[in-house]
Amino acid sequence: MLAAILSLTALGLTLGLGLGYTARVFAVEGNSLVSELADMMPGTNCGQCGLAGCGAAAEAVAGGTVPATVCPGGGVALAQAIAAKLGITLSLEGMEDKGPMVAEVAEDICIGCGKCMKHCATDAIVGAAKQIHGVLHEACTGCGGCMEDCPTGAIVLRPLPVTLRDWNWTKPALAA
Protein backbone atom coordinates (compact mmCIF):
# COMPACT_ATOMS: atom_id res chain seq x y z
CA MET A 1 0.00 0.00 0.00
CA LEU A 2 2.69 2.48 1.07
CA ALA A 3 4.89 1.45 -1.86
CA ALA A 4 2.03 2.09 -4.28
CA ILE A 5 1.32 5.55 -2.85
CA LEU A 6 4.98 6.53 -2.89
CA SER A 7 5.64 5.26 -6.38
CA LEU A 8 2.57 6.98 -7.81
CA THR A 9 3.47 10.24 -6.01
CA ALA A 10 7.00 10.06 -7.36
CA LEU A 11 5.69 9.34 -10.85
CA GLY A 12 3.20 12.22 -10.64
CA LEU A 13 5.83 14.65 -9.38
CA THR A 14 8.38 13.73 -12.06
CA LEU A 15 5.88 13.92 -14.88
CA GLY A 16 4.33 17.13 -13.54
CA LEU A 17 7.66 18.90 -13.12
CA GLY A 18 8.78 17.64 -16.52
CA LEU A 19 5.64 18.93 -18.18
CA GLY A 20 5.93 22.26 -16.34
CA TYR A 21 9.55 22.61 -17.40
CA THR A 22 8.95 21.79 -21.06
CA ALA A 23 5.93 24.13 -21.12
CA ARG A 24 8.19 26.98 -20.09
CA VAL A 25 11.24 26.18 -22.15
CA PHE A 26 9.54 25.12 -25.37
CA ALA A 27 6.69 27.63 -25.13
CA VAL A 28 5.33 28.70 -28.54
CA GLU A 29 5.43 32.47 -28.69
CA GLY A 30 2.34 34.21 -30.04
CA ASN A 31 2.79 35.81 -33.45
CA SER A 32 4.22 39.23 -32.64
CA LEU A 33 3.02 40.52 -36.00
CA VAL A 34 -0.57 39.80 -34.97
CA SER A 35 -0.26 41.78 -31.77
CA GLU A 36 1.37 44.66 -33.65
CA LEU A 37 -1.45 44.67 -36.19
CA ALA A 38 -4.01 44.47 -33.39
CA ASP A 39 -2.41 47.56 -31.84
CA MET A 40 -2.91 49.45 -35.08
CA MET A 41 -6.62 48.56 -35.28
CA PRO A 42 -9.24 50.84 -33.73
CA GLY A 43 -9.61 48.37 -30.86
CA THR A 44 -13.31 48.89 -30.36
CA ASN A 45 -14.26 45.37 -31.54
CA CYS A 46 -17.14 46.85 -33.49
CA GLY A 47 -17.48 43.83 -35.75
CA GLN A 48 -18.02 45.76 -38.99
CA CYS A 49 -15.42 43.58 -40.70
CA GLY A 50 -17.52 40.50 -39.99
CA LEU A 51 -14.85 38.95 -37.79
CA ALA A 52 -14.92 38.46 -34.04
CA GLY A 53 -13.24 41.70 -32.97
CA CYS A 54 -9.98 43.47 -33.75
CA GLY A 55 -7.79 40.61 -32.52
CA ALA A 56 -9.42 38.15 -34.92
CA ALA A 57 -9.17 40.66 -37.76
CA ALA A 58 -5.46 41.19 -37.06
CA GLU A 59 -4.91 37.43 -37.14
CA ALA A 60 -6.79 37.08 -40.40
CA VAL A 61 -4.86 39.94 -42.03
CA ALA A 62 -1.55 38.49 -40.85
CA GLY A 63 -2.60 35.07 -42.18
CA GLY A 64 -3.51 36.59 -45.52
CA THR A 65 -7.08 35.30 -45.52
CA VAL A 66 -8.53 38.82 -45.72
CA PRO A 67 -7.15 41.89 -47.54
CA ALA A 68 -5.50 44.84 -45.78
CA THR A 69 -8.65 46.82 -46.47
CA VAL A 70 -10.62 44.68 -43.99
CA CYS A 71 -11.28 47.41 -41.41
CA PRO A 72 -13.93 49.92 -42.46
CA GLY A 73 -13.47 51.89 -39.26
CA GLY A 74 -9.76 52.46 -39.87
CA GLY A 75 -10.37 53.63 -43.42
CA VAL A 76 -7.78 54.10 -46.14
CA ALA A 77 -5.17 55.37 -43.66
CA LEU A 78 -5.21 52.12 -41.70
CA ALA A 79 -5.24 50.02 -44.87
CA GLN A 80 -2.12 51.82 -46.08
CA ALA A 81 -0.43 51.44 -42.72
CA ILE A 82 -1.16 47.69 -42.70
CA ALA A 83 0.07 47.30 -46.26
CA ALA A 84 3.29 49.12 -45.37
CA LYS A 85 3.74 46.88 -42.32
CA LEU A 86 3.18 43.68 -44.29
CA GLY A 87 5.11 44.92 -47.30
CA ILE A 88 2.28 44.18 -49.70
CA THR A 89 0.88 46.29 -52.50
CA LEU A 90 -2.50 47.67 -51.72
CA SER A 91 -5.49 47.68 -53.99
CA LEU A 92 -7.97 50.21 -52.73
CA GLU A 93 -10.64 48.91 -55.06
CA GLY A 94 -13.97 48.51 -53.41
CA MET A 95 -12.87 50.70 -50.54
CA GLU A 96 -14.26 54.15 -50.85
CA ASP A 97 -12.97 56.55 -48.28
CA LYS A 98 -16.02 58.36 -47.08
CA GLY A 99 -13.95 59.97 -44.37
CA PRO A 100 -14.78 59.68 -40.70
CA MET A 101 -18.46 59.01 -39.97
CA VAL A 102 -20.42 59.64 -36.79
CA ALA A 103 -23.78 58.36 -35.60
CA GLU A 104 -26.59 60.84 -35.23
CA VAL A 105 -29.83 60.37 -33.29
CA ALA A 106 -33.01 61.70 -34.91
CA GLU A 107 -34.69 63.38 -31.93
CA ASP A 108 -38.22 63.08 -33.32
CA ILE A 109 -38.25 59.29 -33.43
CA CYS A 110 -35.95 58.42 -30.52
CA ILE A 111 -38.02 56.82 -27.75
CA GLY A 112 -35.24 56.82 -25.17
CA CYS A 113 -35.07 53.04 -24.79
CA GLY A 114 -31.34 53.10 -24.10
CA LYS A 115 -30.50 50.07 -26.24
CA CYS A 116 -27.97 51.97 -28.31
CA MET A 117 -26.17 53.17 -25.18
CA LYS A 118 -25.70 49.60 -24.02
CA HIS A 119 -24.31 48.57 -27.38
CA CYS A 120 -21.77 51.36 -27.82
CA ALA A 121 -18.22 50.12 -27.29
CA THR A 122 -16.80 53.57 -26.60
CA ASP A 123 -19.63 55.02 -24.46
CA ALA A 124 -20.16 57.65 -27.14
CA ILE A 125 -23.94 57.74 -26.63
CA VAL A 126 -25.20 59.66 -23.65
CA GLY A 127 -28.73 59.94 -22.26
CA ALA A 128 -31.12 58.38 -19.79
CA ALA A 129 -34.13 56.09 -20.05
CA LYS A 130 -37.14 57.80 -21.71
CA GLN A 131 -34.91 60.74 -22.64
CA ILE A 132 -33.58 61.58 -26.09
CA HIS A 133 -30.03 60.36 -26.55
CA GLY A 134 -27.11 62.27 -27.97
CA VAL A 135 -23.83 61.23 -29.57
CA LEU A 136 -20.43 62.60 -28.55
CA HIS A 137 -18.60 63.27 -31.81
CA GLU A 138 -15.10 62.85 -30.36
CA ALA A 139 -15.89 59.41 -28.96
CA CYS A 140 -17.94 57.96 -31.84
CA THR A 141 -16.02 55.69 -34.20
CA GLY A 142 -18.87 55.46 -36.68
CA CYS A 143 -19.00 51.66 -36.43
CA GLY A 144 -22.78 51.64 -36.83
CA GLY A 145 -23.38 48.97 -34.20
CA CYS A 146 -26.00 51.10 -32.48
CA MET A 147 -28.03 51.39 -35.68
CA GLU A 148 -28.85 47.68 -35.61
CA ASP A 149 -30.10 47.85 -32.04
CA CYS A 150 -32.35 50.87 -32.48
CA PRO A 151 -35.99 49.70 -32.57
CA THR A 152 -37.23 52.85 -34.30
CA GLY A 153 -34.40 53.33 -36.80
CA ALA A 154 -33.59 56.70 -35.27
CA ILE A 155 -29.83 56.39 -35.73
CA VAL A 156 -28.10 57.23 -38.99
CA LEU A 157 -24.44 57.56 -39.89
CA ARG A 158 -23.35 60.92 -41.23
CA PRO A 159 -19.95 62.16 -42.32
CA LEU A 160 -18.22 64.11 -39.56
CA PRO A 161 -18.87 67.78 -40.39
CA VAL A 162 -15.82 69.48 -41.90
CA THR A 163 -14.56 72.45 -39.90
CA LEU A 164 -11.97 75.12 -40.64
CA ARG A 165 -9.51 73.11 -38.56
CA ASP A 166 -9.60 69.96 -40.62
CA TRP A 167 -10.52 71.25 -44.07
CA ASN A 168 -7.89 70.38 -46.65
CA TRP A 169 -6.98 71.35 -50.19
CA THR A 170 -7.80 68.83 -52.87
CA LYS A 171 -4.85 67.17 -54.52
CA PRO A 172 -3.98 69.25 -57.59
CA ALA A 173 -3.84 67.44 -60.92
CA LEU A 174 -0.42 67.16 -62.53
CA ALA A 175 0.53 66.60 -66.13
CA ALA A 176 0.80 62.90 -66.89
Binding site: P42, G43, T44, P100, A121, T141, D166, W169, P172
Partner: peptide
Protein backbone atom coordinates in the same frame (compact mmCIF):
# COMPACT_ATOMS: atom_id res chain seq x y z
CA UNK B 1 -2.58 69.35 -49.63
CA UNK B 2 0.06 66.92 -48.39
CA UNK B 3 0.55 68.79 -45.11
CA UNK B 4 -3.20 68.67 -44.53
CA UNK B 5 -3.25 64.96 -45.34
CA UNK B 6 -0.35 64.19 -42.98
CA UNK B 7 -2.04 66.21 -40.23
CA UNK B 8 -5.33 64.39 -40.83
CA UNK B 9 -3.64 61.01 -40.48
CA UNK B 10 -1.93 62.03 -37.27
CA UNK B 11 -5.32 63.22 -35.99
CA UNK B 12 -6.94 59.92 -36.99
CA UNK B 13 -4.24 58.02 -35.13
CA UNK B 14 -4.81 60.12 -32.01
CA UNK B 15 -8.54 59.54 -32.32
CA UNK B 16 -7.99 55.80 -32.63
CA UNK B 17 -5.91 55.78 -29.48
CA UNK B 18 -8.54 57.81 -27.67
CA UNK B 19 -11.41 55.51 -28.66
CA UNK B 20 -9.30 52.46 -27.84
CA UNK B 21 -8.88 53.85 -24.34
CA UNK B 22 -12.61 54.44 -24.11
CA UNK B 23 -13.37 50.88 -25.19
Amino acid sequence: HAKGEIWKRAQQKKRNEFTKGLA
